[in-house]
């Protein structure tokens, strides 16, 4: 089991392009937006915190989803079929591949938080920093599983556009690019149930010294269950196809 994780982590660390590209867009957007709309004083600090969580979440979700594209590559190379005839069980393959997706999300979270603290002047108590980073990271689990579902299910040609479309639509609808409070009422109601919304809101509440809403936690957990089911079913199907 640990052998599989270690080989997948090596492969991840040896693809610096993938890790860098997951950082570039959230970092640039974070710096640009805070400096354009930040205001000054306490308002600026609030904006810097709000956007730090949003952009860390945006980068993390993107990286976790993009992990699915390397699953597509493995699948079309026949690597999944090769694994299937070893003693490694299907469940472990899915769990470890999902964990790889979560670990791929960590650099984006850390980078945006470091920029928040060092450049945008975000000041949080140490335990809040810790909770925000930990929850942003743990919350990537459903997105890593969704990435796997796409990786095991979608055709090689369609995987990239499907991943991009899901990433952008969830980021926008979930209020990562702009607060859902600026949305019209109907869209705001829908936004609450988009997985990225609860995901970011849980950490945001803590960053602003509050407690997460039960609804946000419940919605995110429900998506976790749905995407875990999707990934498992998709993995079972994937062994019977080659492309």
């Amino acid at each position: 089991m640990s052998g599989y994780l270690s080989i997948e982590l090596r492969r991840l660390l040896r693809s610096p392009g993938y890790l860098m590209s997951s950082l570039a867009m959230p970092l640039v957007m974070y710096l640009v937006i805070t400096n354009l709309y930040g205001g000054s004083g306490a308002a600026r600090h609030d904006t810097a915190i709000y956007l730090m969580v949003s952009m860390a979440g945006f980068g993390a979700v993107g990286a976790a989803l993009t992990n699915g594209l390397s699953v597509v590559a493995d699948r079309s190379a026949g690597w999944l079929r090769q694994l299937r005839i070893t003693p490694l069980s299907a469940g472990r393959v899915v769990v470890i591949r999902g964990l790889t997706g979560m670990l791929a999300a960590l650099p984006a979270i850390l980078a945006v938080c470091v920029v928040g603290g060092l450049i945008n002047g975000v000041r949080l108590p140490l335990d809040h920093w810790f909770a925000v980073v930990a929850l942003l990271w743990l919350g990537t689990a459903p997105f890593a599983l969704l990435g796997l579902g796409i990786g095991y299910l979608v055709s090689t040609q369609a995987a990239q556009p499907v991943t991009m479309l899901l990433n952008l639509s969830m980021s926008i609808l979930g209020g990562l690019w702009m607060p859902a409070t600026v949305f019209p009422a109907t869209l705001r109601a829908v936004s609450r149930f988009v997985p990225t919304s609860g995901y970011a809101e849980i950490s945001r509440r803590i960053a602003f010294d509050g407690l997460p809403h039960a609804t946000d936690i419940a919605v995110l957990l429900a998506w976790f269950v749905v995407f875990a089911g999707l990934a498992t079913v998709a993995y079972r199907r994937a062994g019977r196809r080659t492309t």
């Binding site: 492969r11 590559a73 493995d74 190379a77 026949g78 079929r81």
Partner: peptide, 10 residues
């Protein structure tokens, strides 16, 4: 197996 490729970066 037939037509399998080795995965890169290992």
């Amino acid at each position: 197996l037939q037509e399998t490729k080795l995965v890169p970066r290992v």
